[in-house]
Design a protein around this nucleic acid. Structure first.
Length: 575
DNA sequence: GCCGTTTTCGGCCCGACTGTTTTCAGTCG
């Protein structure tokens, strides 16, 4: 059963938004935001906690604990219902538009009764905002741009939400009598960064029990289709799940077919046709005799086509067929290859958990080493000081090697300023085991300035990793504009690694950028940028993205032994 | 609303950017 923390987080987040929109105390709104985040990142399921247990979660006091209990008991919170009655749901949608916050949303609602993104678009197109205070030409342009960005993501959902849903569905279906195999396929299996529908496959003799189990799951909100071969539902979270039940002998062919991609399948079918064969979701057949030649496993199907099994993340027709035919498929990275996380936070800055808690959790993952990289002083809101980071270093050295012999590296996440400068002078940076450096502001510099800025950061002898290099947020913010080939060349030349940030809303670098950077000989670090214990598990999305970028163990510095990693971290030009 | 080796009030994530109301409110990281 899924944890209920996410629902509670969403509810408290909504309440915070409603407070902000209705002009309530800004600190109160922030208190709810903080509590929402803390509950979302809390390792224990809140539905198993009493008031005292809840109040042990940071930023959760008596009042919020009682609201959580009220919600878990009744499914509702009176205070939230009261605010909901004052503000239509659509008004809250508006603040998802970048550059449009609670104040502007309220004005649109009160003055023009706009309560949805569609109504807002129509109003701007009808020039109905002209007389509204604070909505000049440029503001309207920015809002339209924001709406376009939102729409670009379309109906696709982030990969982690899709995976949670898929695992929930599979847990249900695999328990049904007669289930021989079950798995998700489609773009989720290929680990694309966003997912349209979730394709779930079951191998069984009879399909009806599985179709019935899917439509009667508690999380099913709507049945789109309910047939013998295929059933589609939509969950309460708005995710569409398509279930197909195959005869067990067709399992491999079905997985191959429904995993895609379309382009990859066109290639495999073309190979089949040339050999006088026909490939479908039921198997690989001899065209003339109709005899089935392979279907039970994917390996058999690929083998009969003269190909080795191709990892799903590569199945995009980006050269994997050719590489497979030549016997040159890369041995791509796996999650097991990762020996440590090199970008993580603690509650010394904006993380949720203490140094000790994060280290303990990392050790439980079996890491050989682990870097703590809290924010540096130039990100003013984090209030970092020399004293604080040095005190952390001292504590970290005490903990080093004490948790399952995991070694600790003391690092920091520096801020790359507009001219490529970073927080501390070289002599102070020399005290860190590694430095990640990332962009946190001035995202709209022109290409030349941005390129220069990133290259300068690479040239800093103490900067080892560029964190979330393009700084995009999926569905919210495009990446910065730079001459990436020049940046990648600078990384390769200076021995600076590029991060594959595993946060599901970042996945930055993305797959295409990785492919391009790799051709320059760049090294990579697949990091979670964890701000809580739970985030450490997001590594799988970073690994998936790295796989889509064809990365091997050798390309990724945090698969290396500590000795080799340390050698890499000592860049030339250091004192 | 939460929190306290400042402990029951008075702080709380600070500063920059943007557009526009032209002196500052709103938004963002």
């Amino acid at each position: 059963m899924a944890r209920r923390n996410e629902e509670v987080e969403a509810l408290l987040g909504e309440y915070a938004d409603l407070i902000a929109i209705t002009g309530g105390d800004a600190f109160k709104a922030r208190a709810y935001e903080k509590a929402a985040r803390a509950i979302g990142g809390h390792p224990a399921d809140v539905s198993g906690l009493d008031a005292d247990g809840l109040m042990e979660i940071p930023n959760v006091g008596r009042s919020i604990a009682e609201k959580v209990l009220e919600y878990l008991r009744t499914g509702k919170v009176a205070a939230v219902e009261e605010r909901r009655a004052r503000i239509p749901d659509g008004v809250r949608e508006l603040i998802a538009i970048p550059t449009l916050g609670p104040k502007k949303a309220l004005r649109l609602y009160e003055d023009l009764h706009i309560s949805s993104v569609d109504e807002l678009t129509a109003a701007i197109e009808a020039d109905a905002l002209a007389d509204l205070k604070g909505f000049g030409e440029k503001t309207q342009e920015n809002i339209l741009h924001g709406i376009r960005l939102l729409r670009q993501a379309g109906d696709r959902i982030p990969v982690h939400l899709a995976l949670d849903t898929a695992e929930e569905v599979l847990a249900e279906l695999s328990a049904v009598t007669g289930c021989e195999s079950s798995a998700y396929a489609g773009s989720l299996r290929r680990m694309r960064e966003t997912i349209g529908d979730i394709d779930v496959l079951v191998a069984a003799g009879r399909s009806a029990p599985f179709m019935d189990a899917l439509v009667s799951m508690p999380s099913t909100a709507e049945v789109i289709a309910h047939g013998e071969k295929k059933t589609s539902i939509r969950t309460h979270k708005g995710v569409q799940v398509d279930l197909r039940v195959l005869p067990p002998r067709s399992w491999g062919a079905g997985m191959q077919y429904f995993t895609g991609s379309k382009a990859h399948n066109i290639r495999t079918r073309t190979i089949a046709v040339r050999e006088g064969l026909k490939l479908s979701e039921y198997g690989l057949f001899d065209t003339r005799s109709g005899k089935s030649l392979a279907s039970r496993t994917e390996e058999e199907v690929y083998a009969r086509l003269g190909l080795p099994w191709i990892p799903p993340a590569l199945r995009e027709d980006r050269g994997e067929i050719e590489a497979a035919l030549r016997g040159e498929l890369p041995e791509i990275l796996t999650e097991r290859d990762i020996r440590g996380d090199l970008h993580t936070h603690t509650d010394l800055t904006d993380g949720l958990a203490s140094l000790e808690t994060m280290v303990e959790a990392a050790a439980r993952r079996g890491y050989a080493y682990y870097a703590v990289t809290d924010h540096a002083p130039n990100l003013y809101m984090q209030r970092m000081t020399d004293e604080k980071i040095l005190a952390q270093r001292e504590r970290l050295r005490e903990l080093d090697g004490t948790r399952r012999r995991m070694r600790l590296l003391h690092g920091t996440e520096l801020n790359i300023g507009p001219d490529g400068e970073v927080d501390w002078p070289g002599e102070f940076l020399a005290g860190f085991d590694l430095c990640v450096a990332s962009l946190h502001s001035h995202f709209d510099q022109d290409r030349r300035a941005m390129t220069r800025r990133l290259v300068r950061a690479c040239e800093n002898p103490y900067v080892n990793v560029i964190g979330h290099p393009t700084t995009r947020l999926i569905g919210k913010r495009p990446g910065v504009d730079a001459d990436w080939d020049e940046v990648f060349a600078a990384c390769a030349r200076t021995g600076t690694a590029l991060e594959v940030n595993a946060q599901p809303d970042r996945l930055d670098l993305r797959d295409e950028d990785i492919l391009r950077a790799r051709r320059h000989g760049v090294r990579f670090a697949v990091n979670t940028d964890a701000h809580s214990v739970l985030h450490l598990a997001h590594l799988r999305y970073g690994v998936g993205t790295a796989q889509r970028g064809w990365l091997t163990k050798d390309d990724v510095i945090n698969t290396w032994t500590l000795t080799r990693l340390r050698r890499f971290l000592r860049k030339s030009g250091r004192n």
